[in-house]
Simulated assay, not measured.
Amino acid sequence: MHYVESGAGTPLVLLHAFPVDARMWDGVRTELDAHFRVLAPDQRGMGQSPLHEAAAPELTSGDSPWPDEREPSPDSAAEDVLALLDELRLPSAYVAGCSMGGYVAMALARRAPERIDGLILADTKAEADSTEQRDNRLRVADRAEREGTTGWLAGDTLPGILGRTTRHRRDNVVERARALVEQQPSAGVAWAQRAMAARPDSSGTLRAYEGPALVLVGDEDALSPPESARDMAALLPRGELVTLPEAGHLSPLETPETFANAVREWLDGSG
Rank of each mutant, 00 (worst) to 15 (best):
A177K: 11
D171H: 09
N172Y: 03
G163I: 07
T149P: 01
T149V: 14
P159E: 15
L153S: 01
A144D: 12
E145I: 06
W152M: 03
L158P: 00
R169F: 09
R143L: 11
R143D: 00
D171A: 14
R167Q: 11
E175I: 04
E147W: 09
R137N: 05
T149R: 14
T165W: 14
A154C: 02
L153E: 03
E145R: 15
T165D: 14
H168E: 15
R176S: 12
R178D: 11
L162T: 03
V140D: 02
R164V: 03
A177R: 12
D156W: 09
N172M: 07
G163F: 06
R164H: 05
R164Y: 04
R143Q: 10
D171C: 04
V140M: 12
R146C: 07
V173F: 08
T150A: 15
A141M: 09
T150W: 02
L138H: 13
H168D: 15
R146H: 14
E175M: 11
A141T: 01
G148P: 01
G160A: 08
R170S: 13
V174K: 01
A154N: 05
V173H: 10
L162K: 05
A154P: 00
T165G: 05
R137V: 01
I161F: 10
R176L: 14
T166Q: 04
R137D: 02
R170L: 12
T157M: 12
A154D: 10
A154F: 01
W152Y: 02
V173Y: 08
L158V: 07
G148T: 10
L153H: 00
G151H: 09
T166A: 00
G155M: 08
L162V: 01
A144Q: 12
R176H: 04
W152Q: 06
R146D: 11
D156N: 06
E145L: 15
R167A: 05
A144R: 15
T157V: 10
A177W: 06
E145W: 09
R167G: 00
D156T: 08
W152F: 02
H168Y: 13
R143H: 03
V140A: 09
R169P: 02
W152V: 04
T166P: 01
G151T: 13
A144P: 02
A141N: 06
L138S: 09
V174L: 02
G163N: 07
G151N: 13
D142A: 13
G148K: 10
T166M: 01
H168T: 15
R169M: 02
A177M: 12
T157D: 06
E147H: 06
T149A: 10
G163K: 07
H168W: 13
V173A: 13
T165I: 08
R146F: 06
R143M: 05
T157Y: 04
W152N: 04
R164L: 02
E145N: 12
T165L: 08
V174I: 04
G151V: 09
